[in-house]
Amino acid sequence: MNKIWGYIIIVSLVVGLFSGKVELMTTCVFDSAKSTIDTCLNIFGIIAIWSGLMKIAEQTGLIEKLQKVVYPLVRILFPEISKNSRATGDIAMNMGANIIGLGNVATPLGIKAMEELQKENKNKERLSKSMMMFLVLNMASIQLIPTTVIALRTTYGSDNPVQIVVPVLVASFTAALVGVMIVKFFYKEEK
C-alpha cells in the first residue's frame, strides 16, 4: 500500500502539472478533505447505532448463542478461528448484512470482526489468513439484492430492473470462489 500510494500521488501530480491542471489539482486537495469528512459523517451515525445495539446483544448473551449456531458453517472457510472467538458471530452478521444488501450495516460489523480476528493474530502488523479470507468475501460482495443498481435502472426506465439479480449473483459468486481458493491454497503462514 505504501509504494502504490506514493506512486499514484507522484504520477498524478507530475502528469497534472505538465498538462496544465494546476488549479484543478489545488481545489482537488481541499475537496478530498471535505468529501472524506462528509462520508465519515454519513456512516458515523450508523456505526454508532449499530455498535450500541450490538453491545446490548452482547450483554444479553445473544451474540454467544449466534456464535454457537453459525460456528460449524463459518469453520468451513475459517478453520483457524478458535471456538470461543467472538469473530465467528461478527463474520456471520457481516455476511448476512451484505447478502441482503445492507452495506452500511455490514461495515461496522466487518470492523468488529477484524478486531476480533486481530486478537488471534500472531503478528499484529501482518494480515492473517482468516483476515484475508474475510476481506476477499467482502470485496467480492455477494448480495441477493443490489439495491442501488436496481434503483438506478428503474430511474432510467428499464422494463425489467431486477433482470440483473441472477447475473450479479453468478458473477460475484464466481469471483468469490476463485478468491477463496487462492487464499486457501496460496496463503502460507510464516513461522
Binding site: 470485496m139 443490489p146 440483473i164 447475473p167 460475484s172
Partner: peptide
Amino acid sequence: STIMGSSD
C-alpha cells in the same frame, strides 16, 4: 449494471 452490483 451487473459489474456495478457484483463487486465492492
